[in-house]
Design a protein around this nucleic acid. Structure first.
Length: 529
RNA sequence: GGGCCAGUAGCUCAGCGGUAGAGCAGGGGACUCUUAAUCCCUUGGCCGAGAGUUCGAAUCUCUCCUGGCUCACCA
């Protein structure tokens, strides 16, 4: 290895930062409070790709994922939903399930969904629910440590983030014994066994406490550490050595800085390494704000094949933002690029593109891509021509029958292309027979040609034969160039007459796939000025 | 105000110290059947601006400009 900076694949660069002599724990987490938009998958996909890469480097790695189901319900949008207002401020895991037949409580309802979603994407960490960690007492040691150092922590908050908590403040939230809320309580005065607390009516804006107060043990699930301190407690509990995160958290003076400082000073340990990833922007916006955008983003995960979702997250360096808009030519471009990476993989596993392709697969140890893959845009064209059977057409293109894997791959593309044509394809990419007669000025030659081919309609049924006849008729009609070949405007006349655009699918197929009576009427209509 | 990211061919981007690249779009051609597809060829860039380091900078350093995101309450 030479001196100086060597540009390497980003995941390999991260792997080199880790000490190979010791075991490692990668961590990520999520609050189960709603549907997962596609943008929220960037973090988990990156963490998973890093875990796979670390293992490939021979490192001993666990991938731990915590479900923050002890967090208080604070979502403004939930507050407006019927029956939810009374639950504001309660731990997510004590709020009723939207559908008890699916999951027993609100948190589990959403957690079950994203666990399944992750599994479908090949992301399979060890899941831990915060309710279990707290109630079992697994974090009691860390809670005691935090409470005994509350003053030092308060000073760190003041110094790093310029947040001034009142004197006596403790960085935990007690669950109110009277109303069950966790977001509304202020705790003080730790004596080694219990804390004093008050459930304040106006402690936070998004929920109202009940005014109850008393003393209670903060252990065995009676309380929850605040965000920064809970972070440290989990690092300590699991021995986390690597945790990537969004730049909203990893910014200077931000949340991660505070936690790192607390971890060093109070827990006397070195905080995990981890890169900060840029955001995944949706049409220029961060999403979630707009329900419309958020909903679309959730749908996408169901529509895109899992490897394409992973690819979308991994092909861009984590430190660069992804500007994503599913409309227009985005999908064909994405698929083409995916295919280019697959080709790279077939040639050489060690290039950056090849690594990206491999990490995009659901399986950590995938079989190579099929050698024949129909191009996405082509498949979309096939679907728009009634006389074409994609499987047959693909076989013709490959010049051999497709094997099982190639067929499966084709069918995935067919389904995706249907969605694309239906939702996102620009008009130029679509061709359909216009129902009204296009207002086009045809030349005299073109009109004569259109009249003459009328006698073929209904008589010639075979697309190939029709194609040949159209060619011959063009010569007969004198629509030829110097070499005696038909000119472009011959076939363009057909397309303009039926599709309204000068290009389209093979004319022979187009005309034989339509009702003869309809074809004759249309030819009459356009040929008569 | 702090932080991060971007500014390279018409578009989307790759390259990150050694004679400017890809895909798409545009132009031309081949397949003695147009279009599409496929294949071949091709046009096209003072690499945001300025200064510095270097034998050499799109690449490193500094300053600036433009755009985007984000943190400054909670999680």
């Amino acid at each position: 290895m030479t001196s100086g900076h060597v540009a390497a694949f980003w995941a390999d660069e991260e792997a080199r930062l880790l000490d190979p002599a010791r075991p490692h724990v990668v961590r990520d987490s999520k609050t189960p409070s709603g549907a997962v938009p596609i943008s929220a998958l960037r973090g988990p996909v990156i963490s998973d790709a890093l875990t796979r890469t670390f293992r490939a480097h021979g490192l001993d790695v666990r991938f731990v994922y915590t479900i923050d189901d002890y967090d208080p319900m604070d979502s403004q949008s939930m507050r407006e939903k019927a029956g939810m207002a009374e639950h504001m401020g309660k731990p997510l895991c004590t709020i009723p399930s939207p559908d008890p037949s699916v999951a027993p409580d609100f948190a589990e309802y959403h957690a079950a969904r994203f666990i399944a979603l992750f599994a479908g994407l090949g992301i399979t960490p060890e899941f831990y629910r915060m309710r279990d960690l707290y109630r079992s007492g697994a974090l009691d040691k860390q809670i005691d440590l935090v409470l005994r150092n509350a003053e030092a922590i308060r000073a760190i908050h003041k110094r790093i983030a310029n947040v001034d908590h009142e004197a006596g403040w403790l960085p935990i939230s007690v669950i109110c014994e009277n109303c069950g809320r966790i977001g509304t309580t202020l705790a003080t005065d730790y004596d080694g066994n219990t804390v004093a607390y008050v459930c304040r009516l106006d402690y936070v804006e998004w929920a109202q406490g009940c005014g109850h107060g008393g003393r209670i043990s903060p252990f065995k699930g009676n309380s929850k550490l605040l965000w920064n301190e809970q972070w440290c407690a989990q690092w300590d509990h699991f021995g986390v050595t690597y945790e990537e995160g969004g730049k909203d958290l990893l910014t200077a003076g931000g949340s991660r800085d505070r936690s790192n400082e607390i971890y060093r000073e109070v827990f006397r340990r070195e905080p995990p390494l981890g890169l900060a990833h840029e955001f995944f922007l949706f049409g220029g916006k961060k999403m979630a704000t707009s329900k419309d955008i958020g909903a679309k983003a959730t749908d996408l995960v169901a529509i895109y094949p899992p490897e394409l979702t992973r690819f979308l997250m991994l092909r861009t360096h984590p430190k660069r933002h992804i500007e994503f808009d599913p409309a227009g030519m985005t999908l064909p471009r994405l698929m083409d690029e995916y295919d280019r990476c697959a080709d790279d993989y077939l040639r050489d596993h060690m290039t950056d593109f090849a690594k990206t392709w491999r990490l995009s697969q659901v399986s950590p140890d995938p079989s190579p891509p099929p050698a024949y893959r129909a191009r996405f845009g082509t498949v979309a064209n096939w679907l728009q021509i009634p006389s074409i059977t994609p499987e047959k057409e693909a076989g013709r293109e490959k010049a051999a029958a497709l094997d099982d894997r190639e067929l499966r791959d084709l069918h995935v593309r067919i389904e995706l292309a249907r969605q694309w044509l239906d939702r996102w394809a620009p008009e130029e990419a679509k061709f359909s027979v216009s129902q009204t007669v296009p207002q086009i000025e045809f030349t005299k030659d073109q009109r004569r040609y259109l009249v003459e081919i009328k006698e073929l309609v209904g008589k010639v049924r075979d697309p190939e034969e029709m194609q040949n006849q159209l060619y011959e008729y063009a010569k007969k009609a004198g629509l030829v160039n110097e070499e005696g070949k038909p000119r472009r405007d011959a076939f363009a006349a057909i397309y303009l007459a039926f599709i309204g655009k000068p290009i389209g699918p093979r004319a022979g197929m187009l005309l034989t796939s339509l009702e003869p009576e309809f074809v004759r009427r249309r030819l009459d209509a356009v040929a008569i000025p």
